[in-house]
Nucleic acid binder design. Structure first.
Lengths: 224, 224
DNA sequence: AGAATGAGTCAACAACTGTTCACCGAAAAC
DNA sequence: GTTTTCGGTGAACAGTTGTTGACTCATTCT
């Protein structure tokens, strides 16, 4: 018997160095987990065997890459955080007035969420559910993301009258609204639709409301 | 052998009519599911046997109350929705200016979330994770809640210059922010703490920002 | 009184779970 | 060219899972 089944790492393309192949099956495991979650399951409901099966690998192989499922989950958080960071980098620094900026940013965001469906699905749905460990890790990353967004707004000289603390608070609200919208978007069919338009319109209006509030904000206010 | 173990319905208090006892074990099952989720698990990760074990009932008893786990999940959504409705009823119609109203409402909300820990835990964490069926049901209820809140604001004559559609949009944002805050609150130890104070302060500021934006909103605006 | 109902029980089922251990064989290190 | 490393394998383990069907026996209905 020459070979019962080729390992996942060899499936596409020719062989490579050992480390590369290891990383490829590692990614196969991460991807398998995300794919399973895309069928309407939460991370804590995934089983080790299930994941390895989906990845096309024998169960025991799992331990060559992760101590347990939590470790795999944290790796997913890292990947998701990277995806968020790239979003910020791609959407950065475009001209136009507030309204145009907003609409275009939302359009960019919509495309980005579609393109990285699985990553957003993971972040948006494990952000407040399931494993406390993973939840905490996600919240740390999301709050970093909010801070970076705040720095960006500073650099663009938007809302210059706000203190840093307030700006971060505003960005926290913006990011929550973004992730919430991502969760709603992901429940729609992939193709554009009437519902999606409405959803995005509400999203734009909510962001506009937030920035309107931020513009009216006075850091020393205690009265209406 | 007289009796191996008394059923959960008899555990506390004396016996009652049959229907009452049935409902009591039904609630034992619902409660058991919530308690298990409180240990850092998502709903989709719960097993039927696990739930019945926690409820102090034999596995087969489950089928006397629910066809499957989804049905139990939907029952949990109903309960959670009821809890939300009661919140609105309790927090209704108090005087004072905007700022006081806001701070007091947040304090009421904090107490309410603490008092109904498990219900909020379920709603806040399954709102965007796990089973699509349950997620959809929760979103329907949450959006109803937002509409009721909008009606309340109308009745109190707050933000009278906004169209109904806009008011609902604003309330949607408020409710999302509330549930998000609930999720964060529930991750803290039950007793008051420094962190909790900060979290609530941010929560107040975010709501203030939203209402500030709502006050500045003009329904026909297209320019900044 | 007697019959019907139905919530809860018990035993059994095939299927699946996470983890262990020894083993293979190609790539890497010497 | 020999040895070491190590990612992937296969068999086996004790436990758990969802679901079935036949069985109690107190409450309810007649």
């Amino acid at each position: 018997m020459p070979r019962s089944q080729p390992p996942a790492a060899e499936r596409d393309g020719l062989l490579a160095t050992r480390g590369e192949r290891k990383q490829r099956t590692r990614e196969a495991l991460l991807d398998a987990a995300l794919r399973l979650m895309a069928e309407g399951r939460s991370f804590t409901s995934l089983g080790l065997r299930e994941i390895t099966r989906e990845a096309g690998v024998v169960p025991t192989s799992f331990y060559r890459h992760f101590r347990d499922l939590d470790e795999l989950g944290l790796a997913l958080v890292d990947d998701g955080a990277g995806t968020l960071r790239r979003l910020l980098r791609e959407a950065r620094a475009r001209g136009g007035d507030y309204e145009d900026l907003l609409r275009r940013s939302v359009a960019i965001y919509r495309d980005y969420v579609r393109e990285h469906r699985l990553a957003f699905l993971f972040v948006a749905s494990e952000r407040s559910g399931g494993s406390p460990l993973i939840r905490a890790a996600i919240r740390t990353e999301v709050s970093h993301f909010a801070s970076e967004l705040a720095q960006d707004l500073r650099r663009l000289n938007l809302l210059p009258h706000l203190s840093t603390a307030t700006l971060v608070m505003v960005c926290g609200l913006v990011v929550d609204t973004m992730l919430n919208a991502a969760g709603l978007l992901l429940d729609l069919p992939e193709s554009p639709s009437r519902q999606e338009e409405e959803l995005l319109e509400t999203f734009v209006r909510q962001l506009r409301l937030i920035f309107l509030g931020a513009a009216a904000w006075r850091d020393d206010q205690k009265r209406s």
